[in-house]
């Protein structure tokens, strides 16, 4: 069975989104959750680039992908900063311990 580039990309996107969501659901460490977010974004990026390539609009796809990279890097950095700040103020990176303390 040979797969067209678009189908490979769809498989990849679904795989990466799946891995990311598993990380969000099962993750306990705040930093790890940000890693899972990044995995999700990689999946979305792969989709954009593949879509551009399939439609013969590589540069448009690239332009969208760059915008997404910039925005989501900012989000990741803010997530990391929040995580570090929580570690400083609360003393833990554990999601479970955080929700326990809130009661």
């Amino acid at each position: 069975m040979s797969l067209a580039p678009l189908q490979i990309a769809v498989l990849g996107v679904i795989g990466l989104l799946g891995a990311g969501f598993y990380g969000l659901l099962a993750g306990r460490n705040l930093i790890k959750i940000v890693v899972a977010l990044q995995v999700l974004v990689k999946g979305a990026l792969l989709g954009l680039v593949a879509a551009g390539s399939v439609k013969g609009q590589v540069a448009l796809g690239e332009s969208l992908a760059v915008t997404v990279i910039v925005a989501d890097t900012i989000v990741a950095v803010m997530g990391i900063a929040l995580g570090v700040q929580i570690r400083r103020r609360v003393g833990t990176l554990d999601v479970k311990e955080l929700s326990k303390l809130r009661g």
Partner: peptide, 28 residues
């Protein structure tokens, strides 16, 4: 990305995604 023809975004992903973000994670 580069195999899909998106060379420039491949470079950016490599430097930002694999480079910058990893450094930030390690720092954090």
């Amino acid at each position: 990305f580069s195999l899909y023809g998106a060379r420039q975004v491949a470079v950016i992903e490599l430097s930002v995604g694999a480079g910058l973000v990893t450094v930030l994670f390690v720092f954090a």
